[in-house]
Write a protein that binds this DNA or RNA. Sequence first.
RNA 1: GGGGGUUUGCCCGAGUGGUUAAAGGGGGCGGACUGUAAAUCCGCUGGCUACGCCUACAUUGGUUCGAAUCCAAUAGCCCCCA
Length: 425
Amino acid sequence: MDLIAELQWRGLIHQCTDTEGLQKQLDSGPQTVYIGFDPTATSLHVGSLMQLMMLRRFQQAGHRPIALVGGATGMIGDPTGKSEERNLLSADQLAANVAGIEAQMRQFLRFEGDNAALLLNNFDWMKGYSYLEFLRDVGKNFPVGTMMGKESVRARLGSEAGLSYTEFSYMLLQAYDFVYLCREHDCLIQAGGSDQWGNVTAGIDLGRRMLGKQLFGITAPLLTTSDGRKMGKTEKGAVWLDRSRTSPYAFYQYWINVGDEDVLRCIAYLTEIEKEEYDQLAEATAQDPGRRAAQKRLAEWMTGFCHGEDGLQAALAASKILFGGAIEDMDDAGLNEIFADVPSNDLQRDSLTGEGLWIVEALQQAGLVKSGGEARRAIKDGGVYLNNQRVTEMDLRLSASDLASESVMVLRKGKRNYALLRFAD
RNA sequence: GGGGGUUUGCCCGAGUGGUUAAAGGGGGCGGACUGUAAAUCCGCUGGCUACGCCUACAUUGGUUCGAAUCCAAUAGCCCCCA
């Protein structure tokens, strides 16, 4: 299947400046395509993963992807879709973010061999560009009237937050990136999320004016839920690719919990699951949504892809136990791994000797309840579990024999509120 | 500047001199059910050394055997007149 057809069935083409022209261009031989990434944090998140996958698909189809990290544009801040100006990042912060993102990209794109991916930072060519020169070379090609017509600008001009000159200039920088990449790397295609349409077309216009070249733009839909909210967000914030920010378990859980209405779109947009299997999963979801075959496959694919086989296995093991599976034959290392995200508290081991530790006290120490009264109520309601076994006695005393492993006890209140107590000597 | 009103537990909101830790609703937390969903149903929802004790109805003081409930002052909010 050729690339455009592939993107089409996946629903990844939201807009394209010239589908036929692009098809012809792609047919004529390997092309170079670029997507820009905002270095707002040291890790990418699920939202940017979609763009990364887009580059990957191009690479697999034999084209050369350029992942452009916005070290320069990140200093300015893209006003697109933002209700107010964000704080400018410091140079140090930016450098750290760029480094973190670069490391992640290497996981998804191939940087050696034929059509090796390229990782560029626009700070490298912008840092030496003087303001005066930039205005003469680039600014001259931007009719303010056109700029004012862009949705991103209009939206902000009409709002109370307004728009600073700095932000207004953002699109010049991104447009120039495209021109630069075209000139230096023969890159004729820019892809991106649908919110980038204005910036992409600005680059195409500039390419025509400055280089007399016909450039192409293609945007993908945004990854949103059926009710229009951005995906990749939880109550706790973004779902990150960095495992120290979002554990493989949490990552897996995010996907397993995707709604029936959204799961197929996620599979199409984010995975490399083939059309045939996709159709089967669509069928399975329609027939028996309760089985959640699609969610399981999505979670499995995504976790394995982003965190490797060991990450996936860890997530599966953790899921099993965290959803009530028996805790037996466990050692400290295993428990600490599975409950890595869970709050814990360290207590003296001798609190387990003699009378032992009262369960009400233990719950408080673990931070699962705010008071003894709450602990008593929880026990009375049958909502307290020790090592996944329901606690029925109000005056249960914990001793060393209640340890789940060498030195850890697993307390739980309700279905999913876990806490660990560690007993060190 | 003068007059009137209002102030309750996480939120909204009843309440009236004594069975009031304070109706009801929301939210939250448990439990059952379920698809680790939604909906539904049930229980709980100030603290403690816990069949008892303590702290709570803006704050402070007062009346009373006894006050969230009456009085006074203070503060916040709201309205009317100048």
